[in-house]
């Protein structure tokens, strides 16, 4: 038990990443406000960025630029940082698309709450089918 706790404490960035991932998923599933769902998505994606960055970090490491005066320097793996730049771009475009859709939904239904939108849509559908009959 103690070894597990010691491992969790030394690997605290991973623990933090998974807690944030859980918070993000929970926010997406539980909140009915569309904007809060979007914030949940952003929290979840940031947690994954943290996971990647933590994986390549070294305590006391420097940026991977060769320094001839200091041959014993420890360098950080730059691959994950580069990957996460791409990840941030993807997350940005998802956020932009989601915001555009939220604005359209707000104009159409006058609300940002998923329950209200669902009820209004059902009302429209019921009255529509009623008119047809």
């Amino acid at each position: 038990m103690q070894t597990i706790i010691a491992k969790l404490i030394t690997n605290y960035p991973y623990v933090g990443a998974f807690i944030l991932f859980g918070i993000g998923c929970f926010t997406i599933i539980v909140n009915s406000n569309l904007l809060k769902k979007l914030i949940g998505i952003n929290i979840m994606e940031s947690s994954i960025f943290l996971l990647f960055i933590a994986a390549s970090n070294i305590h006391g490491g420097t940026a991977p630029i060769l320094d001839p005066t200091n041959p014993e320097a420890v360098y950080i793996n730059p691959v994950t940082t580069a990957l996460m730049l791409t990840g941030i771009v993807v997350s940005l475009s998802v956020t932009a698309l989601a915001l555009a859709l939220i604005i359209k939904l707000y104009r159409l239904y006058g609300s940002m709450d998923a329950h209200v939108i669902f009820m209004k849509r059902n009302e429209v559908q019921n009255s529509g089918s009623h008119n047809q009959q």
Binding site: F21, C25, I28, I41, M44, E45, V90, A98, L101, L105
Partner: peptide, 15 residues
């Protein structure tokens, strides 16, 4: 509305 639902679910999947 369907597209927003799809976006939320699909982004969860990408995560």
């Amino acid at each position: 509305e369907a597209a927003f639902k799809y976006l939320i679910m699909a982004t969860l999947g990408s995560g």
